[in-house]
Amino acid sequence: MAEADGVSARSVPPYLREAELIKQGAEARVYRIRFLGKSAIVKERFPKRYRHHVLDEKLTRRRTAQEVRSILRCRKAGIAAPVVYFVDLSTNCIFLEEIADSITVREHIAAAQASGQSVESLHHLAEKMGRVLAKMHDEDVIHGDLTTSNMLLKPERSGDLPLLLIDFGLSFVSALAEDKGVDLYVLEKAFLSTHPNTETLFQKLLQSYTAASKKAPAVIKKLDEVRLRGRKRSMVG
């Protein structure tokens, strides 16, 4: 135990020792810190001690790099995602812009439902989500973990409400309709279980996705297939 403590203490970068921990997941810890005079978010992929350390180091580094690549790829296409300030590959930490005064789409929908707003009032948002995801898939970026908690809304003074995608930790690049279909399937599952009675809202999202992307018909066809069999492909036969 003493040894384990020693190792984990050593693996934490000094600058995170006094940082404010805001989230702990299975893959990473998320902190809020001051960085070069700005408020920033640090995502630290900590070592997993149950994996062989060489394999662990390889996987962790690859995922850190992939997350940064996907953010850059999205931003280049005009899809809003947090700015990457700095990458520390020696500790697998990514320093990101903090999206101040934003709320998650999850919070937004829950608040709208709690205040008794009609589902129709959220159609505009669902259409925006569909358009953004269509654009992302047209760039062959598969997010890998689409949920309404991984989408942020940042109200702007101009009255605009841009939608930002966050947490590209499980993302990868693929042109396959299968992967895009699974991406949407994961969102559908998360969406409908988080937000009851929103089937029509998700339909709106898919309609706008279809209208926004030329490649959508193949993806929706795959989505129908995936719905019948689940996220994982059958390897029987």
Binding site: V68, R75, A80
Partner: peptide, 25 residues
């Protein structure tokens, strides 16, 4: 920096991302 990237942020944001990402791309 293409015009479409300026839709989701400033030119400075675009520059910063490229500087940060250059060892991983």
């Amino acid at each position: 920096v293409a015009p479409q990237e300026e839709k989701c942020g400033s030119v400075l944001d675009a520059v910063i991302c490229r500087m940060a990402a250059k060892d991983v791309v």
